[in-house]
């Protein structure tokens, strides 16, 4: 009896004490996050690996084990991996985007009137709804037919210069450039803000020292500004590569992936949800995941070396 009471008291003490509290708080605080993480990330991730070796539909009725067949299909049937070639457009687009953003950020950090206005206008598209942006660009590149539509914005501008209208969204090759343009339009504001933040975090003392040493503007940029923002540029570049590998929204809404504008992610979603080939879709998702892991690994290695 007395032993029992004593035990109870120690349990209570343990709960009140800080070690006990630590464990209980840990369990209580992490309960919901871990349940959600398990449900929506861990289980799907494990399923993805399993499904990629199966032939199964959306509901998972009678899944069949087919070994590596999905991967074989993926790497032999050109309809799947060929969608990666469209990512190259976005990849080059992101270089242009970064260079342009760096130039704009540099100008906005110099003595300039209406700097905030320029910055605000250039940044705002980043805040805008992706569907709205996509619809705006559908109209922007539209080719008028005179019955249901007048010429779109870009063709109207061309007409001002006496040029003929162009079928922007149905000419192979050109259409991807248009989509990349829309993508740059939407995301460049973010890069500009990041670069401005990085440039402004450079201590003014460094500039004064450089001034005393008689550095000119170009030298200042090359020896002070650029080294200080190099890590940000590298980070944005990695994000750009990852972004290019997983482009989805803009081509999906503007062209629906038609006219050879499909990307790997659109193909994945279509395979899984339109053609109901969940196994093959999972295999595609695994391939994308591996690519992203490799890029991240390279990024980690490079950053570590520099440190």
């Amino acid at each position: 009896m007395s032993a029992n009471v004593k035990q109870k008291r120690t349990l209570l003490e343990w709960v009140r004490g800080y070690t006990g509290q630590k464990y209980i708080t840990t369990v209580l605080f992490l309960l919901i996050p871990i349940v959600l993480l398990t449900l929506f990330t861990l289980i799907p991730a494990v399923n993805m690996v399993i499904f990629s070796f199966q032939e199964r539909d959306q509901l998972g009725v009678n899944p069949k084990w087919i070994g590596l067949d999905n991967y074989v299909t993926l790497f032999t049937d050109p309809t799947y991996l060929s969608t990666f070639k469209n990512c190259i457009y976005y990849f080059f687009g992101s270089f242009i985007q970064l260079a342009l953003a760096l130039l704009i950020a540099t100008i906005l950090c110099s003595k300039i009137k209406f700097g905030n206005l320029f910055k605000g206008i250039l940044f705002f598209p980043y805040m805008m709804n992706g569907v709205a942006v996509s619809l705006i660009f559908r109209r922007f590149f539209q080719k008028g037919d005179g019955i249901t539509n007048s010429e779109g914005t870009l063709n109207t501008i061309l007409a001002l210069f006496g040029l003929d209208p162009v079928k922007w969204l149905s000419t192979p090759g050109l259409v991807n450039v248009c989509l990349v343009f829309a993508s740059i339009w939407r995301y460049i504001g973010f890069d500009i803000i990041m670069f401005i933040g990085a440039i402004q975090s450079i201590s003014p003392d460094v500039y004064e020292a450089a001034d005393l040493d008689g550095a000119n503007g170009w030298q200042r940029f090359w020896y002070i500004v650029f080294p200080s923002i190099r890590s940000i540029v590298a980070l944005q570049l990695v994000l750009a590569i990852k972004g290019a590998a997983s482009v989805f929204e803009i081509p999906y809404i503007i062209t629906g992936g038609r006219n050879d504008t499909s990307t790997f992610v659109i193909k994945t979603i279509d395979t899984a949800f339109v053609y109901k080939k969940v196994g093959l879709g999972s295999a595609m998702a695994i391939v994308l995941l591996l690519i992203i892991l490799i890029i991240t690994g390279i990024q980690k290695l490079c950053f570590r070396e520099r440190k």
Binding site: F51, S246, F248, V265, T268, F273, G281, A285, L289
Partner: peptide, 9 residues
């Protein structure tokens, strides 16, 4: 996005 293939189930 591609995680949704299995999150959906």
């Amino acid at each position: 996005i591609s995680m949704q293939v299995t999150v959906f189930q």
